[in-house]
């Protein structure tokens, strides 16, 4: 294998990893506060991409506005989902929340099928984004640059929010000890709503980037990336935002390199490898790379 090929795969991996990282962050923040694995998170990604699709189609809004509108809409849906389905389950068991999230995922997917039909839609970014660049033998287009750039920018903003604002601190406090956080006067409902809003907005961006890379979207598009982003969050250490980012990029690289270097007859097993990796991580290092040990009440 020559090094250009490897470099090319790494660039592709970073592109995919950015998407996983964005989705994984959402998994991680809702998990860290509520101990909830939100399987419907991947479907928010789909909602974001459809939202962007309708905005692109309907009028000539600038890309940034379209992106922001889609993020806003997805955030609203995310908060709505939390308000309706998860809030009544605050004291319920982990399994109850898990089942509910699966139910929500199926609900959103089928509502999608009902309203926008199961037929895939074309999702085309303006021409400029298809333009290819070449650097040291590695080709990448503007879409990749946009994906990575937006992802990194959002992660920096998020880090700033979490580290330096009053609400961000409250959020970290809630993820450590929700009971005591309430004693401090933190309204958990607000913090949880914001966590869902942030996670959903990031997922929407991921959905748009994913749509832009594949050129088409459909109501079931969120399921597999959602599951994989969850795997990424677990690998990085679920509950930790830097962990989610790291896990996202690692998984993106792992997947692309696997496909790039495995003999062609095994590339179909790509998803199987991802989940075997998940099971291995769960068994060998359940707290992930950056996660902190989770105490268990005895």
């Amino acid at each position: 294998m020559d090094s250009t090929y490897l470099l090319q795969q790494i660039v592709n991996g970073i592109g995919l990893g950015s998407i996983y990282a964005l989705v994984a962050i959402g998994f991680s923040i809702t998990y860290s506060i509520l101990r909830l694995i939100n399987f419907a998170h991947g479907d928010i990604l789909m909602i974001g991409s459809y939202c962007a699709l309708f905005i692109f189609l309907s009028g000539k809004v600038p890309l940034v506005v379209g992106l922001l509108l889609a993020m806003g809409f997805a955030a609203l849906i995310g908060m709505l989902v939390e308000r309706i389905a998860y809030r009544p389950l605050r004291t319920a068991s982990e399994e109850s929340m898990l089942i509910t999230s699966i139910a929500l995922s199926i609900l959103i997917e089928n509502l999608g099928i009902l309203t926008v039909s199961a037929q895939p839609r074309k999702f085309v970014f303006p021409e400029v984004f298809a333009k290819n660049h070449e650097l040291a033998g590695v080709t990448f287009n503007n879409m990749t640059i946009l994906t990575v750039g937006v992802a990194v920018l959002l992660m920096i903003l998020l880090t700033f929010f979490v580290k330096n604002t009053r609400l961000g601190t409250a959020m970290r406090a809630c993820s450590e000890n929700i009971g005591v956080a309430r004693l401090m006067g933190i309204d958990i409902n607000i913090v949880v709503a914001i966590a869902f809003a942030i996670g959903s907005a990031l997922a929407a961006v991921a959905g748009i980037m994913l749509g832009g890379q594949y050129g088409r979207i459909d109501p079931l598009m969120g399921f597999i990336p959602g599951l994989k982003a969850f795997v990424a969050a677990v690998i990085g250490g679920i509950g930790s935002i830097p962990g989610a980012v790291l896990g996202g990029y690692l998984l993106g690289l792992f997947e692309i390199l696997l496909v790039g270097f495995l003999p062609i007859e095994y590339t179909g097993y790509r998803d199987a490898f991802v989940f075997i990796l998940l099971i291995l991580v769960l068994l060998l290092r359940p707290n992930g790379i950056l996660g902190s040990a989770e105490g268990r009440k005895v």
Partner: peptide, 11 residues
Amino acid sequence: CPEGRQVFGRL
């Protein structure tokens, strides 16, 4: 002031 201190350890 809760039992067992319960400060936010990572903060």
